[in-house]
Design a protein around this nucleic acid. Structure first.
Lengths: 122, 122
DNA sequence: GGTGGCCGCTTCGGAAATCGAAACGGAGGA
DNA sequence: TCCTCCGTTTCGATTTCCGAAGCGGCCACC
């Protein structure tokens, strides 16, 4: 639940995402995050540092910790879902595919649970 | 990126998460979400409805769409990471102060859906 | 030596998101 | 009838976010 709170903040996920390719400094990272406010940037950075998701190199750049890398990887399925989602709600928006494949994005069999989830960790 | 914006809002992920066990009405859902404000609740619900992540049953309860179910499943690796993360930064919460362990929590967690993470795009 | 650019980071006022509680009409049970 | 729960809306107060300016420091360039 605390994770949902940490990542439910406005730029946390984005920072995690933009740091995936390697360490970045304050301003370069800010620029990558759609030029977000430096004040909020510092705030998120502090939270992520405190959560040990990122750490600061001696040259003051920010880098994902091993824990952060895991989090970033845990984000991968969500990123993949986002693509399907974008194709579903906005088929003509980003990348119109000439073929008809986009129409069949919802595959009710893949989830493999005709019954609702039971006893999940909560 | 739009997904990061949708889910970067304050209760979106939580709502998605609390709806995993089945459809819920407005007030019951609100109660599950740490008694969040009804105003924000309605706002999030509208956004999620618009994003076709949830839909409303004839008895006016809210339920995940197939697309929403996929999103919920895509959240599973993150949930699993959150447990490891909690054990790392707060070892006395579940395990006593043994810094070395980082052992897995003793949950036979049922997150085992059919969507294992296969690392690609990296 | 001076100037200019980029750096990490902070401060501040205004805008936007969020909160918290109250209220509405409706359905059902006692 | 009264009481409870429901979905939903409204409104003022608080929190968060934004956007721009500014600080000192570093280094390249002239």
């Amino acid at each position: 639940m605390a994770a949902l709170d940490l990542f439910g903040r406005r730029w946390s996920l984005r920072i995690l995402w933009e740091l995936r390719a390697g360490p970045l400094g304050f301003r370069p990272l800010q620029k990558r995050c759609d030029d977000m406010s430096s004040s909020v940037m510092r705030q998120r950075l502090t939270e992520l540092l405190d959560a040990q998701v990122i750490h600061q190199l001696p040259d003051s750049r920010y880098e994902l910790t091993p824990l952060g890398q895991e989090a970033r990887h845990a984000l991968n399925p969500l990123a993949r879902w986002a693509e399907r989602w974008a194709a579903t709600i906005d088929p003509q928006g980003s990348d119109h595919t000439d073929d008809q494949s986009a129409s069949r994005v919802s595959h009710p069999d893949t989830v493999g649970d005709g019954a609702p989830e039971r006893g999940s960790a909560d």
